[in-house]
Structures are given as structure tokens and as C-alpha cells.
């Protein structure tokens, strides 16, 4: 794929090309492309003068980053402790069954990416599912189907 180097430059410039801002820069790159394309990572490595292997290490270390394109719809099932004790695992399993993918996967048509998150801080509503930044509280397995239909 080709990337818009001037767009990457403006992201990098925003952080004065500081090596310490690598994670913030990668967050912005990911926001731009919805994932981290290899060419973009190589470009960032070059511009920040960081070894490629270190950039690759950072990109695979942090959970926020993905080297694979994500689905148009992102479903995040909160697996925080409060949600766990209220049965978030059953909700996740129902999503896995309904979408035919495992957590972390993307449906073949590129529509959905199913992911777990460790706590979204909305513990009062647990179990919580966040779909494209919209919160759905008190989730149960039976509510999964209607959520997917609405989405």
C-alpha cells in the first residue's frame, strides 16, 4: 500500500519528532489508518531514528496497536473485574458464536472486529459492551443479537 508521507510528517512534527513520543505518534497513525501499516511504521522509524526492530517491538507490545486492518464496526467487550463477576464472559462467548470469530478476530467480510478490553470505567453498568464508542450496559447474552442488528 502507499501512504501519505506528508500526513505522517505532520503527525511526527506535532511531537517534534521526539523519540519519547513514539507511542503517541503510533496512536495517531493508528487513528488515521485504523491500524498500523508496515510502511507507516518503517517511515516513523526512519524519521525518529529509532531501530525498526524497536518500533516493531512497541507496536506488538501494546494492546492498543494492531498490525492488521480492523473491521468497520468495533465491538469491545469489557472484561474488567466488575464486569467479570457479573458475567461478561457469557456475553463475549455469545458474540463469538454469533459472529463466528474469536475475540481479537475480524469477520471475513471485514464488518466486525471483536475485542476485549480490561476496563472502561463504567463499572456500575457492567457487563458493558462498547460498540463504536457507544456504551451498552447491563448486557446479557440475549441482548447480543439485537445489539448486532442495531449496529
Amino acid at each position: 500500500m502507499t501512504i501519505d508521507e506528508s500526513r505522517l510528517d505532520s503527525i511526527i512534527d506535532e511531537y517534534n519528532a521526539e523519540q519519547g513520543s513514539l507511542i503517541s505518534i503510533l496512536q495517531d497513525v493508528q487513528a488515521e489508518y485504523k491500524y498500523l501499516p508496515k510502511v507507516a511504521l518503517e517511515y516513523v522509524a526512519k524519521q525518529l531514528d529509532i531501530p525498526r526492530v524497536q518500533v516493531f517491538g512497541v507496536a506488538t507490545f501494546f494492546k492498543a496497536f494492531s498490525l492488521k486492518p480492523k473491521g468497520r464496526q468495533q465491538i469491545h467487550v469489557c472484561m474488567g473485574t466488575a464486569c467479570h463477576v457479573r458475567g461478561s464472559k457469557k456475553v463475549l462467548e455469545e458474540f463469538e458464536r454469533k459472529l463466528g470469530i474469536e475475540a481479537g478476530g475480524t469477520t471475513k467480510d471485514g464488518e466486525y472486529t471483536l475485542e476485549t478490553v480490561n476496563c472502561v470505567g463504567a463499572c456500575a453498568l457492567g457487563p458493558v459492551v462498547v460498540n463504536n464508542e457507544e456504551y451498552h450496559g447491563q448486557m446479557t447474552p440475549i441482548k447480543v443479537e439485537s445489539l448486532l442488528k442495531k449496529a
Binding site: F56, G57, F61
Partner: peptide, 9 residues
């Protein structure tokens, strides 16, 4: 060389 490093966690 910095040709190899860690990935994942």
C-alpha cells in the same frame, strides 16, 4: 546491528 529484538508480550 540491532537486527533482532523482542515482539509481543
Amino acid at each position: 546491528a540491532k537486527a533482532i529484538g523482542y515482539a509481543g508480550r
